[in-house]
Write a protein that binds this DNA or RNA. Structure first.
Lengths: 246, 246
DNA sequence: CGGCTCATGTAAAGGTCGTTCACATGAGCT
DNA sequence: AGCTCATGTGAACGACCTTTACATGAGCCG
């Protein structure tokens, strides 16, 4: 039904139909291609088939479009982190590592969003909705850290969950930003960004007292003292968090 | 001597004298103010008191100027990291922590350089000199990691130094990029970026088997097994790497 | 159906930038 | 003194961002 309506709008009625959405999509594509810096308002308009002034009916200016994309990015980011966390199933440590992988996967698979979110110079506090979205995403990490902190083995001081969350975030962002992005700014690595981050997080967790698997150092005298969870060694490749300690 | 020469050049002789340097300085100031994205070639020219076309006598285009600044940034960066490392004096761990602090200090005190180096979208491999400078800076971290890795307590597998260096770098960059930069993009933190990074690195090192001070968990049964170095607890506040494990 | 209104799009214009080109200037050498 | 080449100027082009006055037509009301 309403075939004509849709059709006419799509086929260049004077009114576009849903230009706002079209602009967001166009911008996303352009950012993916040329980075947030190279993206231009005029190009997005052109790609949507409208005049250069049309976008101003939907966004105050170029920055607002960028900030909208960043916001949308944080929403999808939250969704993916949340799915990866899966409320800590099947066990906290496994789920936690999955979150780290999801972080990098997002940075890799959604470069446009990641760019808009973290590298476009958009101030987080520009848009309250943006800030809220950003916080909701971070809260996933925070919640995961909270659960992980609650598992610290007895006899070990319990780290503040907020701090853990910030640490994990900084590691993830650091790896993503330095090694897992862009076609050009990449350095040569002895291992993949995923492995790098995984090892980093595992070493960090061990530093907090978590009994992470370490085959080569295993004296065979350490029954996992963490109740009632902790397969813990889940994704650790043999040889410890890093490959082969030659 | 040659008073007249200098004077006339400074007072707007047709020829500027050393426009190249003036442009670099102007650009640096502009980037510090408005970010690498907001910096404009024309503005730099204006600030140096020359026409908009003049800069092209010294830089192929805007990107080359940016890349020059990034290169200079990496050189200063290397100098500061190198001074902080001080070849591992008085002991490796202390010096290592100093390097971390120097990293953040540079990001905080030289936002223009840091921006040009890591957030301007300049591809590292654009300019061979830039890439070389970048590598020299990283090599400081790498060398420090190397020395630290050599100190792993006996019985603990020795981590690859390269990996350690990358980990430390990613932590530093993550913290600097997320929390220690820009007037706007900053989040509210329960602790300073410096403390955050210090705790992060210490926990990481402990995860590698380094006997980092932890007063509350100290069983009193651990004579420092690291020869012949290691005051190691150097800058650690009582209560472990973080404040108070309440 | 006819007309009103308002959201949505257009065209034109002003300002800034990046960049190029022909031309001017003058510093240093012979 | 004169030549030459590095360095700076001015004008011009095209692209972009943004504003303003005007056009269009979708939805609604009588």
């Amino acid at each position: 039904m309403s075939w004509r309506k849709e059709q006419r709008r799509a086929e260049r009625g004077y009114h576009h139909g849903n230009l706002k959405e079209a602009l967001l999509q166009a911008a996303l594509g352009l950012i993916a291609e040329k980075g947030a810096a190279g993206f231009t308002f005029a190009d997005a308009a052109r790609m949507a088939g409208v005049s250069a002034a049309a976008p101003y009916r939907h966004f105050r200016d170029r920055d607002e479009l960028l900030s909208s994309i960043a916001q949308r990015g944080f929403e999808q980011f939250e969704a993916r982190l949340s799915a990866a966390w899966d409320d800590g199933r099947p066990d906290t440590v496994t789920a936690f590592e999955r979150v780290g992988k999801a972080y990098l996967a997002f940075a890799r698979e959604e470069p446009a969003f990641y760019n808009a979110m973290f590298e476009s110079g958009v101030p987080v506090d520009a848009n309250p909705a943006l800030q809220a979205a950003s916080e909701r995403a971070f809260n996933i990490i925070r919640a995961a850290a909270e659960r992980l902190a609650a598992l610290t083995p007895p006899g070990t001081p319990r780290p503040p969950a907020m701090m853990m969350a910030l640490h994990i975030w900084s590691m993830s962002h650091g790896v993503a930003s330095l090694f897992s992005r862009g076609d050009a700014a990449r350095r040569k690595l002895p291992m993949s960004p995923d492995e790098l981050l995984e090892a980093e997080v595992l070493i960090y967790l061990r530093g907090l007292g978590f009994p992470i698997d370490r085959r080569p150092a295993s004296t065979g005298a350490e029954p996992p003292p963490v109740p009632p969870e902790a397969p813990s060694g889940s994704g650790v490749p043999p040889g410890g968090p890093w490959g082969k300690p030659k």
